[in-house]
Each structure stands twice: as C-alpha cells, then as structure tokens.
C-alpha cells in the first residue's frame, strides 16, 4: 500500500465542538495528554513513507483537528458542488485556532504555516478565514487544497492521480515527499528523522554494513569486516 487516502465522515460542527473543549481546558492534565497524543499521531503521518492524499467529499468533516489530515496530505482534492442525486451539501473545509499551532509538525510549525512558508500574507488570509465553512473555490483561493473537481470529473481525476502515483518509483516518492513536507527550521526531531535516519538507511544498504564481509554481518564472528575504503 504505497498510498494512503485520507477521508472523513461526519458533522464538521461536531468536530469543532470537540476542539473547543480541547482549547478551553488546555491546562487540564487529561486534555493535555489527548492533545499531545493527537500531535504525535499527526507527526507519525508526516514521517510516514507513504503518499498521503486527502479527499474532501460530500459528508466529510475536515474541520479543526481533522482538517490537519487534509493539511498533512501531499495532495488534496475537494469536491466542487454537490453530487447528483444525493442530498448531501457540497463539502467544506473549516479551519480554526487549533490549526494555528496546537498540533505542530516536527519543524515546530503548524501544517498551515508550513504550507504557506515564506508567504505571511497567505497565512494571514487563511487565519482570517478561521471558523468559516470554505467551499471548493475558497479553498483554492486560499491555497488550502491542491485540486477542486466537480462530480462529473471526480472519480476519473482521482483515479488517474492514484494510478500515476502508483507507477512512480516508491523510493523516489519517499525522498520527494520527505523533502517537501518539512519546510523551514530544523529541530532535533527533523534532524533525527531526516538527516540521521536517511544516512543510516543508506548505510544499511551498503556492502560495508550489510554485505557478506560487512561489519554488521561480521560482528561477533571473530573475523574483521572488509571495507571498500572509497568515500562516496
């Protein structure tokens, strides 16, 4: 499974009501734990070696904390308008104060600030839309989604994107996504998951570590490892 498609179902107002409790009782030990657990879970999405695609469809509830799923995605689609023959209203994205720092990424920034890195005006525009039910066109204007598609094109366009993605080298996609997700400042955490882990994972593949004469394989055997001493 190289791609994770992120969807939600429910009432955006209900999600925002839960967020309000999280914010109102921020100092309470249990709320602190719940919020911290959300933060870490969302961070785990950020460091996942999977393509993340958010689909904002009719009946969805990408609001507040759950809007973080859309902001965590590498690409996102929102349905523009209603679905023919269905009673559901056109889907919306709703941002709130919780998207402004309650769930920071490893770089210390919110996903919203990371998205608009280097464009404080765009970040401010998104902030001024907090609490509003943003339809497809507004989401596009505010740079909050990648694509808006109507009901007629939706299935084909989404499928095409997923098929294209599945045809790319998974290794190149890992590198691409990890490089684009974390903008701006480095922290201990970004260095561990980026620099340290990336080097380690490369070293793991090299014969000097994992080859038959490599150090990992030779450890404990009594014979010394044989290294290729050329620096790469």
């Amino acid at each position: 499974m190289g791609t994770w498609i992120l969807r939600t179902e429910g009432d955006p107002a209900a999600v925002l009501a839960v967020d309000e409790v999280l914010c109102e009782h921020r100092g309470h030990w249990l709320i602190r734990e719940i919020t911290a657990f959300w933060k870490r879970s969302l961070k785990r999405l950020d460091v996942s070696a999977r393509t993340l695609v958010a689909l904002i469809e009719a009946g969805s509830c990408f609001a507040g904390t759950l809007a973080e799923l859309a902001l965590a995605a590498d690409q996102s689609f929102i349905l523009d308008g209603q679905v023919a023959d269905r009673d559901l209203p056109a889907p919306v994205l709703v941002l709130s104060e919780v998207n402004d720092g309650l769930h920071p990424m490893a770089n210390g920034l919110s996903r919203l600030a990371s998205r608009h890195w280097g464009h404080p005006d765009r970040l401010d525009a998104a902030r001024s839309a907090f609490g509003k039910e943003l339809l497809a066109a507004e989401c596009l204007d505010l740079g909050l989604v990648t694509f808006a598609r109507d009901d007629i094109d939706w299935d084909d366009e989404v499928r095409l994107m997923l098929e294209e993605r599945a045809a790319f080298s998974p290794d190149a996609l890992n590198g691409l996504e990890a490089s684009l997700r974390f903008v701006g400042p480095e922290t201990t955490e970004t260095k561990i998951f980026g620099r340290l882990s990336a080097w380690q994972n490369w070293i793991f593949l090299r014969p000097n570590a994992s080859g038959p004469e490599g150090a990992l394989r030779r450890y404990g055997t009594g014979s010394r490892p044989v290294y290729d001493h050329r620096r790469v």
Partner: peptide
Amino acid sequence: ELGAAAIVVRAR
C-alpha cells in the same frame, strides 16, 4: 490493484 489504503475517520 491501486496499491492504496483508504483511511476513513468518522466523527460521531
């Protein structure tokens, strides 16, 4: 077939 997992989060 697509190599994709659809994850739905439901708010009740």
